[in-house]
Nucleic acid binder design. Structure first.
Lengths: 158, 158
DNA sequence: GTAATTTGGTTGATTATTCAATTAAATGTT
DNA sequence: AACATTTAATTGAATAATCAACCAAATTAC
């Protein structure tokens, strides 16, 4: 086995020397879970959850999106996103309309109430984010997203 | 506002200069989702899913655990973990017994079949992990877990 | 121009997660 | 020792996510 292979062996769950505490994906999962739980604490009093919030944030940034655009960015299954969107529609947070250009696509857009809602969540979560970034320098944060991106790209190649 | 505050502003969703593509938690969520989807592809043919697998991996490492031990490590809600464990028990993957030392706790343990199953999954996911770590050096992986750990700690302080 | 295929989305049935309430054992208090 | 509190786990009801099957519009092939 190559020198590189030997060194990296402990990161393979099938290896004898595997150590879960050194395993990046264990921490990705844990961090994501903790982050989600903290966000939900903030969202709960306003009858929101993290699924809705992710959709709302994407719409705030991109203006209007099709259901599959949202599914792609939020990495969710199509039926899941469809149902979240229609839940949000029932709650008055988004509008859903058939596209003029392509009769198959549903164009989703935040309503005024939806925009208002996003701003409110943003304000209320600010403290949480400041806490999360405590002690980090700008290059360190950049480095983090860069490393995560590389893992993401590696897993993206089919 | 402080010099640090100004530099880090673009990482706050409430800020004008916020850029979601630079936002670490967006990538944590995306990477976790992509990773989960890829793992599930492998697990599906053997009637497993990522929840069961996480529990199985933890048990493989720790030997035996209480339900709340599992909940803590997997960062899941107690009722959720309880139900996953009993699902796995019905499938013959784990045993559940009342603790001798403390009558409240349920001690969960992999069965022989459960152990066999974990080994099989480990083999089948090996390629996926090799792909994920493609192009990474050992220090880079270490750096990744270290950075994720710091975010985790920041969010852990209640 | 018609048939076949692909793409985008929706729906119903199934499965999983979460909340709220409950039980039971252990610990603490007086 | 009796009572209150905390901890560990479980259950039923409600909510959400996923799979499979489906429909309809658009694109491609012939």
């Amino acid at each position: 086995m190559s020198a590189r292979g030997t060194k990296l062996e402990k990161y393979l769950p099938s290896s004898e020397s595997f150590d879960i505490n050194e395993f990046p994906f264990y921490w990705v999962a844990r961090l994501n879970a903790l982050y989600s739980m903290e966000i939900e604490k903030t969202l709960k009093p306003m009858k929101m959850d993290i699924s809705r919030w992710r959709v709302a944030m994407l719409l705030r940034i991109h203006g209007e999106m099709s259901i599959s655009d949202i599914a792609e960015h939020a990495l969710g299954k199509l039926p899941t996103i469809t149902k979240i969107v229609y839940r949000m529609k029932d709650e008055g947070l988004v509008s859903v309309e058939q596209s003029e250009a392509d009769g198959r696509v549903s164009v989703v857009c935040l309503t005024d109430q939806g925009i208002e809602n996003v701003e409110l969540v943003r304000q209320r979560t600010e403290g949480l984010f400041k806490r999360a970034f405590q002690g980090f320098t700008e290059p360190q944060i950049k480095k983090t997203t860069q490393l995560l991106n590389r893992f993401f790209d590696n897993l993206s190649v089919d």
